[in-house]
């Protein structure tokens, strides 16, 4: 187990090294950094001085070495546009993106897995068929469209509705269901982290972006769990578990669901990575002050230090998540724990 983790760590270092190489090469190929930083009236001499000060006259391997050593220490250079350290800007934006990703990942797991189990168990049920049809819509609609539709309904339409009388008992104002269409709402600053999870306003602001971002993953997880459940329910050990008179819950969740977990963990791990990486679209639709939005602005301004740092950060998340996924396999499946000695390795 320890040897395995060390091996995976070394592999991860290699991955990060190559990603660093790619992001570093952006500096070389996408325009001249000096041109981005100075004004039109800067003299050639001043430009040359700046070039020397930035170390751009060093041989490229030396520049790369400096870049990596700085990056390892958390220094990704200074934004061309904003003249502020990139790492500081990332730290400011990171909580917004991570909170959004975490909530939408939880949403897709906590709703997707039960729906998958349900549709797997009641294959021909009416509700199961409804879920499957709806999931098709979720899979085929583009993310931004879902976001825009949600905004249209919950932020625009509800705001214009008159209060409705419910059976003449009380008046229901549709505005209580109204949700904010942009920003994080009120956030609490914990010093190193700003969170929207502690205020009602912040939570309300999270609802629509999380649904938008998580809906595709939800339908994917639901369909995956469903097909795995159908597979596992046919196996002999499920038949035998029933023959032993185990309770339905124990058979369906203890025995069947657990056996579907290995593929589900794999996919979930990959999806959490892409939720973080592709939050860009959702963040744009909802004006979410996260890293994705910052990245898009950086692309518009050819702000290479930010783009390079973003690339490396996303790669880092992918590597960490994959490492966690690999370790979860060990927790779930005893057949992978090879170090148990006698009798292993056969069948």
């Amino acid at each position: 187990m320890v040897a395995f983790i060390i091996r995976r760590l070394i592999q991860s270092l290699f991955v990060m090294f190559f990603v660093a190489l790619v992001s570093f090469s952006m500096f070389q190929f996408i325009g001249d950094p000096v041109n981005q930083m100075v004004g039109v009236e800067t003299s050639l001499k001043e430009r040359a001085e700046l070039r020397e000060r930035l170390g751009l006259n060093d041989p490229i391997p030396v520049q790369f070495f400096n870049y990596i050593t700085d990056a390892v220490q958390g220094d990704f250079g200074i934004s061309y546009q904003q003249k502020r350290p990139v790492s500081q800007m990332l730290v400011e934006r990171l909580p917004a993106t991570l909170e959004l990703s975490l909530i939408s990942a939880l949403f897709s797991l906590l709703v997707g897995i039960p729906m998958g189990v349900y549709t797997g168990l009641n294959r021909n049920g009416f509700l199961a068929k409804c879920f499957l049809t709806i999931s098709l819509i979720g899979i085929s609609l583009p993310t931004f469209l879902i976001g825009i539709l949600l905004i249209f309904f919950f932020s625009v339409t509800l705001a214009n509705l008159q209060p409705i009388s419910i059976f003449g008992l009380f008046m229901l104002d549709p505005k209580i269901f109204q949700l904010p269409s942009f920003g994080r709402g009120t956030v609490v600053d914990l010093g190193w982290w700003t969170t929207g999870l502690l205020t009602v306003d912040g939570l309300k602001a999270l609802i629509m972006p999380s649904i938008t971002l998580g809906l595709f993953q939800l339908t994917l997880i639901m369909r995956l769990v469903r097909s795995e459940m159908l597979e596992v329910l046919r196996t002999d050990y499920i038949k035998f578990a029933r023959a032993r008179g185990l309770r339905n819950r124990a058979v369906n969740f203890g025995h069947a669901l657990k056996n579907t977990m290995v593929p589900v963990i794999t996919i979930t791990g990959l999806q959490v990575g892409s939720i973080i990486a592709f939050a860009i679209i959702t963040e744009t639709v909802f004006q979410w002050p996260g890293m994705g939005q910052m990245f898009l602005q950086a692309v518009t301004n050819v702000d290479i230090p930010i783009m390079a740092a973003y690339l490396m950060l996303i790669a880092f998340f992918f590597v960490v998540i994959n490492l966690i996924v690999d370790m979860l396999y060990y927790v779930v499946d005893p057949r992978l724990r090879i170090d148990t000695g006698k009798g292993s390795g056969h069948g």
């Binding site: 196996t235 050990y237 035998f240 578990a241 025995h255 056996n259």
Partner: peptide, 11 residues
């Protein structure tokens, strides 16, 4: 059942 290899839950 017939097949002891598959009658037990591997997990």
């Amino acid at each position: 059942f017939q097949d002891p290899l598959t009658s037990l839950n591997p997990l």
